[in-house]
Computed example of a mutant assay.
Amino acid sequence: MESMGEVMRSMNNPALRQRSRDLQQNLLNDPLVKQLQAEHPELDDSRLKLHMSRLFQYVRESRNCASCPGLEHCPNDFQGHYSKLTVENVNGSPDLFERKTACNLKIAQDSQDSIRRRIRSFYVDERVLNGGYDEMDIMGKDPRRASAVNKIFDYITRVKEDGLSPQGIYLHGTFGTGKTFLMCYLLHELAVAGYSGVIVYMPDFIEDLKSIMLDGQKLKETVDTLKNCDLLIFDDIGAENLNPWARDHVLGAILNYRMNRKPTFYTSNYPLDGLEKHLSFTSKDGEELYKGQRLMDRIAPFVEVIPLHGENQRGRNR
């Protein structure tokens, strides 16, 4: 590190002083600075010279943005932000102020992060939620899906225009027709509109409840999350291996709370009557028709039933 004496001697070097003056003049003559002066003629050169470091930062970061290398490689001091200069009167005199301002790429990223924070998944592959959606692609993959897809589009539009209602959707069809994908699309679109949502893959969720039941706090937090989110999707309901406790005390409690309050959505390989048979049977107690009907009273009146027809899309882009 240079000593203070060396720094002082360098300041007395005529060549260095001249170079400093040249750099200062080049900066004052920069088109961006000239434009700033044209917009604010009250800023004369003497006033600008008091803020050379701010002008330098402003010009440098403006040029970086003009040849933007992308958000991940942003060379500015604060990633995704640029220096914005404003002129304000202080004690009757104009002065220059610098503010760090988020660029469009940063704003877009923050918006996507906010959307992701509104969506939680239990045992569902995150790639399905974050894969991106194209409405024309969704519609065009298989014409036989058109009726179901249009109904989902209509549901999303109604919620955006009128807000949430207790009415959800029961989407059923054969294997691989894109039920989960379409429900994730619905979840994403309504998260963009500001709603929170949870999607639960039922076979793994019911299996995991066996361990969660030993942790009372975790169980309560999980059930409360499913009760209180704006949008709840039970994915592949009917494929789980039910036990009486999971059916009556967990699933039943969640559905009992949400009915008449918030919409619940389902994907299943079963139509509603097939689901009722499934819910009437547990691995421990066998067939209990009354308990299956009790749960269906909390499902059937609160859903629009949509059959989804089409080819098995597994292994293809949906």
Score class of each variant (00 low, 15 high):
R60G: 00
V128S: 10
M139G: 02
I199Q: 12
V124Q: 05
M1S: 15
L209C: 14
D215K: 14
K84N: 12
K277R: 15
Y195V: 01
I237V: 13
K84W: 05
L219I: 01
D224P: 03
F122L: 14
T86M: 11
T282Y: 03
R261N: 13
I156S: 00
R47L: 15
D44P: 03
H188R: 15
I152Y: 09
P94T: 12
A300S: 14
L209S: 11
L96N: 07
Y82G: 11
G310T: 03
Q57W: 02
K227E: 10
I115V: 15
Q293W: 02
L275A: 05
L308W: 01
M52L: 14
D297C: 10
F122N: 08
D230Y: 09
I107M: 02
S3M: 11
G173L: 05
R54T: 00
E39G: 07
P143Q: 09
E135R: 15
G286F: 13
M296G: 08
S196V: 07
I119C: 09
N317F: 05
T174R: 06
N312D: 11
V192N: 15
H40V: 09
D77H: 12
P271N: 15
Q313H: 14
T225P: 03
D215H: 14
P14L: 07
D142Q: 10
R314E: 11
D125Y: 06
N150K: 15
N150E: 14
D44I: 11
Q313E: 07
Y82T: 13
G252N: 04
F78M: 12
V149E: 01
C65A: 06
A38K: 15
R318S: 06
C74R: 03
I156L: 02
Q293A: 15
N26G: 07
Q112M: 12
A146I: 04
P41H: 08
W245E: 03
F181V: 13
K179S: 12
V223H: 03
F175L: 12
L231K: 09
P301K: 08
Q37I: 10
R144Y: 08
A246R: 04
L71A: 01
R17E: 15
R120Y: 08
M139H: 07
Q35Y: 11
L96I: 14
R120H: 09
L27W: 01
L23E: 14
L255R: 01
M202D: 09
M8G: 00
F281W: 07
G238Q: 01
K34H: 06
I152N: 06
Y58N: 02
P75D: 06
M296H: 03
V192Y: 15
